Every structure is written in structure tokens, then in C-alpha cells.
Simulated assay, not measured.
Amino acid sequence: MTTQKHDNLINGQWIAGAKYAPNINPSNMADVIGDYTQADAAQLDAAVKAAQAAFPAWSTGNIQARADALDKIGTEI
């Protein structure tokens, strides 16, 4: 069985890293949930720059909209 590969979301785009690492279910070590990409230094820098660029609008945005966004993110996780 092939596991699903998950990339990093950086500045609104899904980006594959240099390699993937398995996420293993701790209650069943034979159950690989998926393979998750590992960012390199350049991707880390790009993600930090994107977050810094997004922060001014996010920090001055509507509190309810921020709460709703975080709730949706939490639900997805």
C-alpha cells in the first residue's frame, strides 16, 4: 500500500521538500499515516518571510475572523 505524501504549504503553495519522513501511528507501529515532506533551509526562510509578510494584515484583522480561522485549522488538524 502506498501512503499519501504531504507537502508544506508556503505562501499559499504546496511545496515538496528534499525528502519525506513517515508519520507512524503510535498505537500501531505498522500503521503509517502518511509521508510528510521535510523542508530545507531555503524553504524555511521562504516560510518565515511569508509569515512575516502576512502578519500585519492578520494582526489588525477582525478578532472573530481570526478565531474562526484558527478553529477551522484546529478542526483540520
Rank of each mutant, 00 (worst) to 15 (best):
Y20G: 02
G12M: 13
I24S: 09
T2R: 01
S27L: 03
D35H: 15
A18C: 14
T2P: 03
Q13D: 13
Y20C: 02
V48G: 10
A67W: 06
A18T: 15
A65R: 01
A50V: 12
K72G: 04
P56T: 14
D71C: 10
G74P: 13
N25R: 02
P26H: 05
A65F: 06
A41K: 01
A69N: 10
A50L: 02
N25W: 00
N62C: 12
A16Y: 12
I77P: 04
D71K: 13
A39C: 06
A47P: 01
L70M: 06
D45P: 05
K19V: 00
D45E: 11
S27Y: 05
A54L: 10
D40N: 09
D40T: 11
N62E: 06
A47F: 02
I33R: 04
P56L: 00
Q64L: 03
I33L: 12
E76P: 00
K5Y: 10
L9M: 08
A16K: 04
D35C: 14
E76H: 04
A41S: 10
Q13A: 13
Y20F: 14
N23M: 01
S59C: 07
I15E: 03
A18K: 12
G61S: 12
A54G: 10
V32F: 02
S27R: 12
M29P: 15
D40R: 05
A51E: 01
